[in-house]
Design a protein around this nucleic acid. Sequence first.
DNA 1: TATACTGTTATTATATTTGTTACAGTTGAG
DNA 2: CTCAACTGTAACAAATATAATAACAGTATA
Lengths: 145, 145
Amino acid sequence: MNSEFTIAVHSLVYLAYIPDRMANSDMIAHNVNTHPSRVRKVLSCLKKSGYLATKEGIGGGYLLNFQPERVTLAELYEATSVGSIIPSWSSGSTDPACIVACNMAKVMDRIFSDAERQLVLYLEQTTIADVLQRVRESGIEQHSR
Amino acid sequence: MNSEFTIAVHSLVYLAYIPDRMANSDMIAHNVNTHPSRVRKVLSCLKKSGYLATKEGIGGGYLLNFQPERVTLAELYEATSVGSIIPSWSSGSTDPACIVACNMAKVMDRIFSDAERQLVLYLEQTTIADVLQRVRESGIEQHSR
DNA sequence: TATACTGTTATTATATTTGTTACAGTTGAG
DNA sequence: CTCAACTGTAACAAATATAATAACAGTATA
């Protein structure tokens, strides 16, 4: 799985967490632990999909453009990483002498596509608000020990 | 997703397809379109899990050790590629100043593990015999055009 | 007009995946 | 017994994918 999905989810959870729901790429990159440029790349994509507003110039940054309860991980997967569970390598050949050799790639591709559909169905069950909630619960566990 | 899973499935479908259900790594590698050594690596793993018998020496090779109707893709995924949909990269840091930064990795890891469980559930629905059937149907489509 | 941002591209570094070679160990035929 | 044909495995090389970094044009705002 593509780690841009992780960066997208983390960034949005972080924005949902902070009071004014706004931060620039430096702050997000520091929280996510990657390079600001990578954050900008992922978030510019989420902006195009309408999940974020941006403000350029002094004091600007990324601003959450949705209710955390209304955006699911499935949407973010589709926006950033669709196809990423399908392996780039395919078996078989176009040699028509063996139906296994020449049809396996097609059959496996179908299996992977369907698997991805199942994955998306599962990701639909979790919203950004849910993830933030889990983060908070993790924090509580941590302190109570 | 790991392509060893693809190699495993393709190899077993091929063995299930050929009449005597036996072939050596050269024949399988040629059908799969990879190196015999890679085939041996994957299949030695499947042998350990009991899906194959091997015969060394002249005329030897890999022999299907199960009914194609009784082995699911889930088992092969577990044998060859478990964990492969979980990204190696994790976000966040151990810096305790922000609960998002320090708990996201754990929360995401849980999400990916659950996603993998869903994937396995899906793969349980398909057997090697089903895949072979689909290969045969692809072949029919191909000829009827 | 200077400054602080985003958006984007290009480049480098690192990690992963795949291909290949090599060889020890095993089996069975002759 | 000996040779040839296998598997099993490790080591290495090549190719590819991923992540980090740098650079800079464009834009908004103080």
